[in-house]
Design a protein around this nucleic acid. Structure first.
Lengths: 110, 110
DNA sequence: CTGAATCCGCTCCGATACTG
DNA sequence: CAGTATCGGAGCGGATTCAG
């Protein structure tokens, strides 16, 4: 998918939907919203995700300017991921999702 | 995808992500949040979506208890879609998404 | 540790045609 | 008007292998 806004018009919902494409996008953003994380750390926090998929999502979120990647020239290599400013502003959405999601889970359990 | 909570644990983010699966889910929920709509009406409000896809999404959102479907025994047939109570509570998320999305679009335009 | 490169299978999108 | 049936193609997930 491309980044061009023109293809999605000015609809904030369609645009956000595109950013949230993929099974893990929302959870990854949430995990990064709690602080900077290393690659391996993220993988542990996302039970079931593979290296390939995690990398793919992180690359896409980088393109989308939601995630920042910082590489340290060390041995062994260290790479840290964090949210950009735009990513941090997503906090408001995350909070709403968290509350709604918990209520929704309760509903499904009934 | 199934509805079983057990497969997604108690993570509100993974659960919400699953509900929002698909290119049009978020926009459909938004359109219904502004009031009950007929099928054709929805299709007009979602430029580019086909009958097949709209139907498929609506069926899934029904399964997920987000959308209600009401059929009137008339000729020509009339079917109205609206949000369930759980769907209406999603309003909070929609509001946050709308604000963030608009800011995000501005960022991309720079 | 943090990847990249393949490859396969499944799901989802969407076009088309048909129906009550 | 409001769908269903079918089908091709694209996108995504995930396993595996190799590399700096």
């Amino acid at each position: 998918m491309t980044n061009k806004v023109s293809e999605y018009g000015i609809c904030p919902f369609a645009t956000t939907q595109r950013v949230l494409t993929g099974k893990w996008a929302l959870v990854i953003i949430y995990q990064l919203s709690t602080g900077t994380k290393r690659f391996k750390e993220l993988q542990r926090l996302l039970p079931g995700i593979t290296q390939t998929i995690l990398t793919r999502h992180l690359r896409q979120l980088e393109k989308d300017k939601i995630v920042q990647r910082k590489v340290y020239a060390e041995v062994p290599p260290r790479v840290e991921y964090s949210l950009t400013e735009m990513g941090q502003e997503f906090r408001v959405v995350l909070d709403a999702v968290e509350k709604w999601g918990l209520d929704y889970i309760k509903l499904l359990e009934m």
